[in-house]
Amino acid sequence: MKIFLASVCAGAALLAVPVDRVLATAAPLRIVTTTEDLASIAREIGGDAVTVDAVARGYQDPHFVEAKPSFILKFSRADLLIVVGRELEIGWLPPLITSSRNARIQVGATGFLDPSANVKILELPTGQLTRAMGDVHPSGNPHYWLDPGNGRLIAASIRDRLTTLDRTNQATYAQRFADFDRRLADAEKRWDAAMQPYKGTRVVTYHRSWPNFTDRFGLDVIGYVEPKPGVPPSPAHTLRLITEMKRQQVKVIIIEPYFDAKTPRQIAAQTGAQVLTLAPSVGGMPGVDDYLKLFDFNINQLVAALAKVGT
């Protein structure tokens, strides 16, 4: 019992340790994001008033990130946690939040931001859902950042939340948002012009990562390398896809850098299509260093490929 009492005393002593920090006014706000896309947008809005750290790399599958203890350390010090939401991170984020011991970023706290409530979400399921459908997301497709319009809405959410957390820099956040908004709008005109000749082009993608992107830029996805979301390619499905691609004259297969390109290449060899690895996130491919470059890269790659195959 003495040891128990000693343990209680030790616990009480630990409680007496000064709390980490409670938003010191001078120090930059510490932001942790689950993906590099959110990190890039947060940097656009926060500038020097914040530090930003992303957990998942742009070239890894965001569904299957490991909840490493080193991430717990990042979470434990964060003033603001920004997540993609829509259950994209369901397999790894909750343990990190719980283990962070950081009241500021718990779900529902002011330091927890899920911008997905204020963006355009596609593929919202209707009717009954079962896992026989594969890895379906009950709250809609979570890859919504691949529409630059949603990027603007994410930026607005971040601006609003930063303003709540740090009113002293309100003008900075507003000004940086306006600047980002203007540069994004200019870029959108450029991207729209580049993609205009290819509107309605039929493509195939590996996973359902691209609906917001293809919807925004007018591509028509007629099939997927995966038979169902999250289910590896099967021979029967691959044969059906090859037949359909031949029938519809599909010449481009879009894949993510974290998928094995073997099956897409086999399909391409049978159909005369080109396999195109696009960046699903900032950092997904070399040179894709920020949110605007993400679309610059993908649009450039697409335009070059579509011009080459003569679609």
Binding site: L14, L15, A16, V17, V19, S76, T98, R101
Partner: peptide, 8 residues
């Protein structure tokens, strides 16, 4: 989950 001093 919300104890001070990095406690859980």
């Amino acid at each position: 989950t919300s104890l001070p001093a990095s406690l859980l």
